[in-house]
């Protein structure tokens, strides 16, 4: 019991350290985005929703960069500095998972939730019904947050396997942008009606970005459950899979 408490203490201390190192960049982005959102809530609610995919993309990029930082520490040897103090590999991994991915995802959620809490909390629960969606902004944020964790852990896993950070970041980019974008393009080419709808200048990019942000939402609906619930279950499932995968590697990594 004592050793578990000690272990948790060390994890928390390392999370604290990691967050302290990286928080500045997140502060800057969060404050800027939140200011835009606050203003949008007052002046143009639909804009606040349209901006979600863009903010989501930037955060996933930031979080993937952060989640692959331990890979960088591994290849450079900085990890030895921490592990030599008695921090175990599992503790090191847990600290990065929580400090690098989960905590920053929480920060991402604040962009929308704090202005909404201040301006009008009902913004978060009222159905959005835009772009063919039928979820509330709050639900959409939960989906995005679960996806952020998913991409972050993918970055951690691939980085751990390859020991190359750039490859990990590329893998996230591939999964998040390139593949969905190409599928969307192909689909629009081969499905004339869809193509007609999609190929309208800037709307193409908007649709694609949004499609990616809500891709898990769009993909489900096959189990006959509430689509939101289904997408949450699917995302949580994949989050757990990738957390386990990256954990399996990190607990035995040679440094």
């Amino acid at each position: 019991m004592k050793s578990l408490q000690d272990s948790i203490r060390r994890i928390i201390n390392h999370i604290d350290y990691i967050v302290g190192l990286q928080i500045r960049i997140f502060y800057v982005f969060t404050l800027i985005f939140s200011a835009i959102i606050s203003y949008a809530f007052y002046s143009s609610p639909s804009m606040s929703l349209s901006l979600l995919p863009f903010f989501f993309f930037i955060y996933v990029a930031l979080i993937s960069a952060l989640a692959t930082e331990p890979v960088d520490e591994l290849s450079k040897g900085t990890i030895q500095v921490y592990l030599a103090t008695g921090l175990t590999r599992k503790e090191y991994y847990s600290a990065w998972l929580f400090g690098g991915v989960v905590f920053q995802t929480l920060v991402f959620l604040l962009i929308y939730s704090i202005p909404a809490l201040i301006i009008d909390p009902s913004i978060l629960v009222v159905p959005v019904r835009q772009y063919g969606l039928n979820v509330s902004l709050g639900q959409l944020l939960i989906i995005c947050a679960l996806q952020t964790i998913y991409y972050g852990t993918i970055g951690m896993t691939i980085g751990a396997f390859t020991k190359r950070r750039s490859l990990a970041v590329f893998a996230v980019f591939l999964l998040m942008v390139i593949i969905p974008f190409s599928i969307g393009l192909l689909a629009s080419i081969f499905t004339p009606s869809l193509g007609e709808g999609i190929f309208k200048g800037i709307t193409l990019i908007c649709n694609q970005l949004l499609y990616v942000a809500i891709s898990s939402y769009s993909m489900v609906g096959v189990f006959g459950m509430n689509p939101f619930l289904e997408s949450v279950i699917v995302l949580v499932f994949f989050d757990i899979i990738f957390i386990l995968l990256s954990y399996m590697f990190w607990r035995e990594v040679e440094v």
């Binding site: 502060y27 404050l31 200011a35 203003y39 809530f41 704090i114 201040i118």
Partner: peptide, 12 residues
């Protein structure tokens, strides 16, 4: 961050 965001909210 929450305090800063509430300030942003006030400014907005």
């Amino acid at each position: 961050l929450i305090i800063m965001l509430s300030l942003v909210g006030i400014i907005a």
